[in-house]
């Protein structure tokens, strides 16, 4: 490991631990205001959707809204399975299966 790699890992560790731990340890000892608690309920949907949607629609920096985009097709199938069954394991297994199959078919 080089010196700059070490520096990078130390820095990343400090900032990541720095956003996870202090809030967990301190906020529980203070009473959070009701509006903050209400807002927090939307955090997972907000953050994860913002990660997923560009992953599915934008590949290599350009829009890929067409049936040969396996990410998009398998993403839609996964969302439908999750919506109908609410079964996480089934969603992941079938979603990955559809993804790999679609890539094989379209030869991308």
């Amino acid at each position: 490991m080089t010196g700059s790699e070490l520096l990078m890992i130390v820095g990343m560790t400090v900032v990541t631990f720095g956003v996870r731990y202090p809030v967990l340890a301190l906020v529980g000892r203070l009473q959070l205001p009701q509006p903050v608690i209400r807002a927090l309920r939307y955090v997972p949907v907000a953050v994860l959707t913002a990660i997923i949607v560009p992953e599915l629609l934008i590949r290599d920096g350009s829009w890929q809204v067409n049936p040969s985009n396996a990410y998009l097709v398998a993403g839609i199938v996964s969302a439908l399975i999750s919506w109908r069954t609410k079964n996480l394991l089934l969603t992941i297994v079938v979603g990955m299966g559809v993804f790999l199959l679609w890539r094989a078919i379209t030869g991308a």
Binding site: V45, I52, G75, A79, F99, A108
Partner: peptide, 19 residues
Amino acid sequence: LGLDFAMSVTFIGIVVPLL
């Protein structure tokens, strides 16, 4: 191989039931 789809499908399975 495009196995990074694993992250997306995991997050989809977490988010959709919350809607």
